[in-house]
Design a protein around this nucleic acid. Sequence first.
DNA 1: GTCTATAATTTGATAGAC
DNA 2: GTCTATCAAATTATAGAC
Lengths: 198, 198
Amino acid sequence: MTRRGSYAKGIAKREQILTVALELVARQGFRRTSIRDISEAVGLTQAGLLHYFESKDELWVEVLRRRDAIDDAADWDAHDPAELLAAIVRHNAEVPGLVQMFVNLSAAAATDPEHPAHAWFRERYEKFRRVMAADFRRMQEDGRLRADIDPEKLTSVLLAVSDGMQIQWLFDPSRDMAAHVELVTRLAIAEVAAVSAS
Amino acid sequence: MTRRGSYAKGIAKREQILTVALELVARQGFRRTSIRDISEAVGLTQAGLLHYFESKDELWVEVLRRRDAIDDAADWDAHDPAELLAAIVRHNAEVPGLVQMFVNLSAAAATDPEHPAHAWFRERYEKFRRVMAADFRRMQEDGRLRADIDPEKLTSVLLAVSDGMQIQWLFDPSRDMAAHVELVTRLAIAEVAAVSAS
DNA sequence: GTCTATAATTTGATAGAC
DNA sequence: GTCTATCAAATTATAGAC
């Protein structure tokens, strides 16, 4: 409430930093992007930038948080969790810096319990598994999904395909990430009609 | 041929370095393992270790190469490419350092064309896709695999599940990586019988 | 084959002034 | 909110002794 002008400016600067950081990652690669590069790109010194984020890794975590917040708020055109995931994956292909960052950060966080993003990723996987699996269970009750599939396993598989295809896509951007997610979905869903029709 | 004794010793030392490197990664994490740590663990100085490997990243690439060479030579009990992949994935769960390294290195290589492992990964994915897809195509001709699946896409999906589950497994080692690969396989294969029996 | 020594860089991070 | 200054590490790399 106090000093509204400079407060708003601080918020805007934060946003700018997060945006520019992703642009730099897309342009010069995640490993090659230092905190100094980012600070200079937004017209700050390195120390100036660290006024906004406690550390480099914390900055990346903030990028992830913001992405999820935006995704959560977005109005996706999807009828089931698998379609939703495919839509998100399709959207990610528009933001190469984000994919680069996600891949590297998830790897680092997975292999280091002390990493600032470790708990975030862990909880994210759990949340997705819980929420999506519940939806899949409902679909099974409605006969829209094969009954012989464990909903939790299917969720994990879809998340794994999504994560794994990001890597393959980075090596060859002509690969269609979302199409591969949809292949699994089709195998899990379409046969219901075929089997019940037989 | 010359100086056989010391030559053999050099080979043995190289092997020791690669083995110890993986042990250290498993124990203290990939990011926390420096070339100095490894050199000290094998009774060398940093400079001494760099007599064997041109750089840290080259050392990691050698670990990958050796792993693949061992896997290629192994006698896997598998009847089709999907079973083979599941067997390899199951085996990987016994070597946590390797999984840690693979995840981090593939991320780094994917996001940096100059990375020493970039070409290696790229070609590896291509090779797997080519070889496995050819096998899947044969299985389709034999009626052992659903005909409405693109063999290349199925291969990419299986590799993605394998890579993606490694990450989820690192966050929670109680997850069964191979079982998730097998879920996809079952969806792609088993229905042939069901459909053709109907 | 292995060491000591050391240079040169780069990076993330901190203290404290303005 | 931003800067200057400065640190401590980590890493690659090299020269040259043993």
